[in-house]
Write a protein that binds this DNA or RNA. Structure first.
Lengths: 223, 223
DNA sequence: AATAATCTTGAACGGTTGTTCAATCCCCAC
DNA sequence: GTGGGGATTGAACAACCGTTCAAGATTATT
C-alpha cells in the first residue's frame, strides 16, 4: 500500500537493510556501543525489533556491518594518498602529503552528512578497551596504520623507531579530536570555529603537524 | 574479625566509601559509563550493591564523585604551570611551557597507577555526546581550557582566533590519544614504545607540538 | 548502660536488555 | 492460481539493569 510496496530487486525504494544500517550508524555514534539499544535503532529505522537480528544476526553483527560498509572508502583514499606521497621526491613536500593522506580521508566523511556519524564511531572505538574484544577496529585499521608509519619513516630516514611512532600517534590524536568533537570546539571559541567546517579544520591541523614533524627538537628524543 | 574491624575515625584501614570509589574508577575506565554496571562496581569493591547508592545516591552521583576527587589535582597543576609560563619573557621558551602545562598534569596521572584509569575516563567523556547531559566534564574542565587558550594567544599575538583555537585542540588531541591508548601503540611498534612510559611519550609529543606551533605555515590560515 | 545515629545487608522492585519464535505477509517462478 | 521462499511482524523469553526497602549490625552520644 505504501511506496515501498512496488519495490523491485534492482532498486528498491528504501531497502530495509539499508535503513537499519544508517539508523544504527546514527544511534551508535550518539550513544556508543553499550548505550545504543537494538530497540532504539529499530525505532529510528521505523521497523520492528526482530528485523535487526533477522538481517544482521546480532547487535555485534550490525556493528561490524557498519564498518564493513564504511572502511573501504577511507582505506582506499589513504592508500591512494600514500602512493601520491611516494611519488613526490622533495621530502618536505612529501611530509605534507603523508599528513594529508592520514587526515583527509577521515575528515571527508563529514562531507556527506550521514557518514559523519561513522567518524565518531571510529574515535569511540579507539578509546574503548572493549574494542579489542569486538576486534573490528584492529583488523580493519591496523594494516593501513602500518603503511602510514612506514611512510613517515621514509620521510625521515635518520629518525628512531620511537620518534616515528610517536609522530604517527601525535598526528592521529590531533585528527581524532576533530572527529570526536560534539560542540565543545565551537563553545570554547564562542562559535568562531567549528569542527563542522572540516576543510578549515584540516588546513589548520595539517599546518601544525607538518611543521611539527619537520622542525621538532630532537635533542631529547634522538636516543 | 577482619582487619577493618578495628578501624577508627582518623585513619580507617580501608574506608568503604573509598573502596567503592576506586573500584568504580577502574570499572568506568574499562567499560564506559553505560557499559559499567553498579553491580560490577560493587563486586569489584567487595561490598553489596546497595552500599553504592547509599554512599553516592546514584550511579551518576558516583561518577561525579570520581571527578570531584581527581580534577582539582590536574587543574591546580595546570594553573601553576601557566603561571610559570607567564613569568617567562622569551616567547619561544614560553610556548614550551604552555604545552607542558597542558600535557604533563594529565600524563602525570599515570604516575600513581590507580588514577591512570581517570585519564581514560576523561578521554571517554570527551568523545561521548551524552557527556553534555551529565555536565561533569564541561563544568570542571572548560574554565582551565579558556586559560590555556588565552595563554597560547599571548604567545602569538598576531594569530587569528581560529589559529589559536585550532592550535589548542590539536594539542589536546595529541594528548588525548596517549591517555586513551590501550595497547595499540605498543602493538603497532612491536613493543618498542608504550604509553605506559608516559614521560617518554610526553617528551616526544611536546617536541612535535612546540615546533608545530612555532614554525607552522600560516599562509592558508592567516585569514 | 541506654539511646540515637550511622552503616551494612540480602532480597525485592519495576523496567529494559538482546534475542528467539511461530505466525503472517508479500512477491516471483511455475 | 498455486506453491514456496524470503521478508516481516508482534509477542514472549530469560537475564540483567539501577534503585529501594525493611531489618540488622555497628558506632557515637548521653
Amino acid at each position: 500500500m505504501s511506496a515501498k510496496a512496488h519495490k523491485n530487486k534492482t532498486d528498491p525504494v528504501e531497502p530495509t537493510r539499508e535503513r537499519i544500517l544508517s539508523a544504527a550508524e546514527s544511534v551508535f555514534a550518539q550513544f556508543g556501543y553499550d548505550g545504543a539499544t537494538v530497540r532504539r535503532i529499530s525505532q529510528a529505522a521505523g521497523v520492528p525489533v526482530a528485523l535487526v537480528n533477522y538481517h544482521f544476526g546480532s547487535k555485534l553483527g550490525l556493528y561490524r556491518a557498519i564498518f564493513e560498509k564504511r572502511t573501504p572508502t577511507v582505506i582506499d583514499k589513504r592508500v591512494a594518498g600514500l602512493q601520491m606521497a611516494r611519488a613526490e621526491p622533495d621530502l618536505d613536500r612529501r611530509v605534507d602529503l603523508v599528513v594529508r593522506a592520514l587526515i583527509w580521508p577521515m575528515f571527508a566523511l563529514r562531507g556527506d552528512d550521514p557518514s559523519a556519524d561513522f567518524g565518531r564511531i571510529v574515535t569511540r572505538e579507539m578509546s574503548d578497551p572493549q574494542a579489542e574484544a569486538r576486534g573490528v577496529f584492529k583488523e580493519m585499521f591496523d594494516p593501513v596504520a602500518d603503511m602510514l608509519i612506514a611512510a613517515i619513516g621514509e620521510c625521515f630516514p635518520d629518525w628512531t623507531k620511537a620518534e616515528v611512532h610517536w609522530a604517527y600517534h601525535t598526528m592521529l590524536g590531533a585528527m581524532t579530536i576533530v572527529l570526536t568533537d560534539n560542540g565543545r570546539i565551537g563553545r570554547l571559541s564562542d562559535g568562531e570555529v567549528s569542527s563542522d567546517r572540516w576543510e578549515e579544520a584540516a588546513v589548520h591541523v595539517c599546518s601544525i603537524l607538518s611543521a611539527g614533524l619537520k622542525y621538532r627538537d630532537r635533542s631529547q628524543t634522538r636516543g
